[in-house]
Amino acid sequence: MGYIIQVIVDALSLGSLYALAALGIGLLFGVLRLINFAHGDFITLGAYALIVPAYGPDAIRFIADFHPVALIICTILVVVAIALLSELLVFRPLRYASAATLMVGSFALSFVIQNLIIMIYSGRPKSLNLWSDLTAIKFDVGGVDIALLPLLIIGVTMVLMVLLVLFLKHTPWGVQMRAAAEDFKMARMLGVRANFVISLAFVLSGALAAVVSLLFEAQLGILMFRMGTPLMVFAFIATVIGGMGSLVGSVVGGMSVGIVSSILQAGLPSEIRGYRDVFVFGLVILVLLLRPQGIVLSRATRERV
């Protein structure tokens, strides 16, 4: 019994991280038709922001030693600033380019960020414990110890999703974003400012990336210049199988990918457990063959039917 609860908690917490990352990607895709492959690097930068920019082998704690509230705010500010800067320097000049060009632009940005991290912080992994209490505090559930962190990850994700929905549904800015996501030209003809809405999407995406940075770093305890990349890859897959252009789809996709990975991790015989991702990606291909439009139909897809 306890073991099953353990697997469920792990599955939901991994799914939550993927869902949060997928939401960050989905928001930008909705407004800008940009598949932002640099999203994983935004996540990485959020974690690196916690230490003093220095080349040495050890991590010198900086924001990481702040009071948790200040820590969260500072990390979000840093990542949001980077997201806005990326918009200004990379994506604004490409605004009227094709979706493919935008995507290639995001690849380039991703390389630039990774190499900047190597130049400033060096490419060596650095150990950094964040909020170690969260993994130390455990609850005894049916004979198995469940740490606080995965429960926190699930809780934070749910709260953020509710906040995002409230924002999008019930604030004028949120309504503007939804309008722009559906029909950007018409929205502009009614006075919706393109720069504002797009910047807002980058702010939200950056803030979500920062939260993922902190939760992921608390779990991982190590800084690596490509730590965000696997999250980005899984989150991207999540948005694809969830249905591009649908935020609900991003969440459903993220949760599904996380849950399937965790179940495979727990269920596969130990000899082939190392090849878990092969099975995950195999299932993804299967889903795409059976339902190429994604699990949740977005508006655009539905209209064509």
């Binding site: 004028p172 309504v175 503007q176 939804r178 309008a179 996501a181 559906e182 029909d183 018409m186 929205a187 009614l190 919706v192 508006r299 209209e303």
Partner: peptide
């Protein structure tokens, strides 16, 4: 060009 995802009032509010 109505915004189909928004309700009638939200469309007008835009």
């Amino acid at each position: 060009h109505v915004f189909t995802v928004l309700n009638v009032e939200e469309n007008l509010r835009i």
